[in-house]
Amino acid sequence: MTGLLLAEARRFLSRRSFRVIGVLAVVAVIGAGVLVFVESSKSLSASLPQAKQMVTECHQAIGSGPTARIRNGGLTVRDVASCPTIRQAEILFDKRFHYTDTTKSTTQNVAFPLFFLAFAIAASFVGAEWATGMMTTTLTWEPRRGRVLLAKVIPALLILGAAVIVLFAFMAVVFIPIGVFRGITTGMTASFWGHLAGLWLRAALIAMFGASLGIGLATLARNTVAALGIGFVFVAILDPIFSHLWRGRFGPWLLMQNLQRAMRMPIEHVVGHAAFGNQVTMTVQSATRPAILLSIYAVGLLAAAYATFRARDVT
């Protein structure tokens, strides 16, 4: 079994899809870093001209524009609307790179594409083996199918999870000079790093979840394209449709909402009663439930994949 695991890990690491996507991800981080570096500026005053212009335009609009003369229940527009101060406007146009905020939010957002990439890489890891007929060769060396499946799942999950953490750590490092030379680095406390590391771990777990789905579907379909197709139809069509049906009652059971919750992102939450007009608020909710639910989904799918793999002929 150890031999099989190591062999599968080596196969995985030398897969072209994994290597190409890995290199592209690194290039993307560097490219984004360079762009952001160029676009950002060290001081807040860089946005002063824009801020001044905005405030001036605002005062003109309120003070001398046609709206000023509109009377509405005895109030002038000036009474209900006010223009921001130059200081406030400056913040709106702030061009400084805020290291902690940006790193955190980027990590949260990039976790989703990584989920899909992990899904696709893992699906092709298994799908390609069926397509080439390599599964027959593997099974004549290790006929116990549970082991064969485990030897796909374990290396794929561990390697993809580790790759996600490495990628985010790399991104955090690439962002440091941008913060130092083109922005502010306040807030880099131990608790920030702890929080960030937590996000990396969550993103890694999400990628591992994606990889489980990819392997499960590719094992069921015995084909990469079919697995990707099923995944796409579900995430791009079924998930959004169901999440809006019946006042969002399915949402907590669907993938996207759980992934967002797992990444500590605020999700839409309907409060109040339809008769009084629904109120939609955005709240960050605990990730315990998504963690349990997504684990159950992954294990369930893999168990179904194993049962089918065990029973079906390999021809």
Partner: peptide
């Protein structure tokens, strides 16, 4: 079984080494 299948991207030796690893 039928035409033997290997990893096209690996050398013959590497393929055999992987199989040796699987079969211990």
């Amino acid at each position: 079984v039928e035409t033997p299948t290997f990893f096209g991207g690996f050398s013959g030796r590497r393929n055999l080494e992987l199989l040796a690893q699987i079969g211990e």
